[in-house]
Simulated assay, not measured.
Amino acid sequence: MPLSAPDSLVSSTSRRPRLVLASNSPRRRQLLTDLGLSYQVRLREVDESFPAHLVRAEVAEYLAAHKAAAYAPDLAPDELLITADTIVCLENDVLNKPADAAEAVRMLQRLQGRAHEVYTGVCLLHGDGRRVVFSDQTRVHFRPLTLAEIEHYVAHYSPLDKAGAYGAQDWIGMVAVTRLEGSYFNVMGLPVHRVWEELVTLGAVGL
């Protein structure tokens, strides 16, 4: 079912493509809704492995484009697909979603007391074949955390569906993140300022 924000800020026109979000992330859905966009959600299983030679932003952009390619055959000419992938990088190590609670604890132990980068890759694929792929970077600073704090977060929140085993909007973001360099929304899973800019350029939204 299409989702839309009440009193949408986006002017409607039959010439604009219908937006399709290919993501199960409630955070991405909320961010698009908060932008005032109407969109439909489509979901399917897509392999999230990536070539070993890719690093940092290359990984995020590759995964976003790879996801879009999986949906492309079913995309109508008047639709515009949005896919995204968020990764956490500690130096050149990519920390994706943890497999279990033990791995989540280990990831957070590595991140505590250090700064790391969050990259979100985005692919906008128009049904007429036009494609835009980009990424955004945010540097996140964590204060030192105790094992008890890490275990509390892992036990009481939901780190297994989040890159790097944490969500900046969660409890751990409030107690651990001391500084951000870049977009907070990018850390949540979508660089909405860039998404809006590219959608305007593609003629998909406007005021």
Rank of each mutant, 00 (worst) to 15 (best):
A70W: 13
A101N: 12
T83S: 06
E61W: 06
A101H: 10
C89S: 09
D85N: 09
P77D: 08
I87T: 15
V59M: 05
E91T: 07
V88I: 09
E79L: 00
Y71H: 14
A68W: 05
A84V: 06
D74P: 02
N96D: 15
L75S: 08
I87A: 12
Y62D: 06
K67Y: 07
D93W: 03
H66K: 15
Y71R: 01
I87D: 11
E61F: 02
A64G: 11
A69R: 15
E61D: 07
D74T: 10
V88K: 00
E58C: 11
A72H: 11
P73G: 09
L81D: 02
E91A: 11
L63D: 13
V59A: 02
L81K: 04
E61T: 09
E91R: 08
L90T: 03
L63N: 10
P77W: 01
A101K: 14
E61I: 02
E58H: 03
V94R: 04
Y71A: 02
I82W: 02
A64Q: 02
T86G: 10
P98D: 11
L80P: 09
Y62G: 10
A64D: 06
P77F: 01
Y62R: 12
A65V: 15
A60G: 09
D100N: 07
E79P: 07
V94Y: 06
A65Q: 12
T83M: 08
A65I: 12
A69V: 05
I82P: 03
D93G: 06
A57V: 13
A72R: 15
P98W: 10
A57N: 13
A84D: 11
Y71F: 15
A102P: 04
H66W: 06
K67A: 05
N96S: 15
D93Q: 14
E91Q: 14
L81C: 05
A99R: 14
A99P: 09
A57K: 15
A68P: 05
A64T: 07
D74M: 02
I87C: 15
I87S: 09
V59R: 07
N92M: 10
Y71C: 10
K67W: 05
A101Y: 03
A84P: 03
E58Y: 01
D93L: 12
L81F: 09
L75D: 04
A76Y: 03
V94G: 00
A64Y: 05
A69E: 15
H66I: 04
E58L: 06
I87N: 06
L90I: 08
A65N: 12
A101S: 14
D74W: 14
D85F: 12
A72D: 13
Y62E: 00
E91Y: 03
D74L: 07
P77S: 05
P73C: 06
H66G: 09
D78N: 14
A84W: 00
A84T: 10
V94P: 01
K67T: 13
E58P: 07
N96M: 13
K67C: 04
E58G: 15
L90W: 00
L75H: 09
L95K: 00
K97L: 01
L81E: 02
A70H: 11
V59S: 08
V94M: 02
P77Q: 04
E91G: 07
A99S: 07
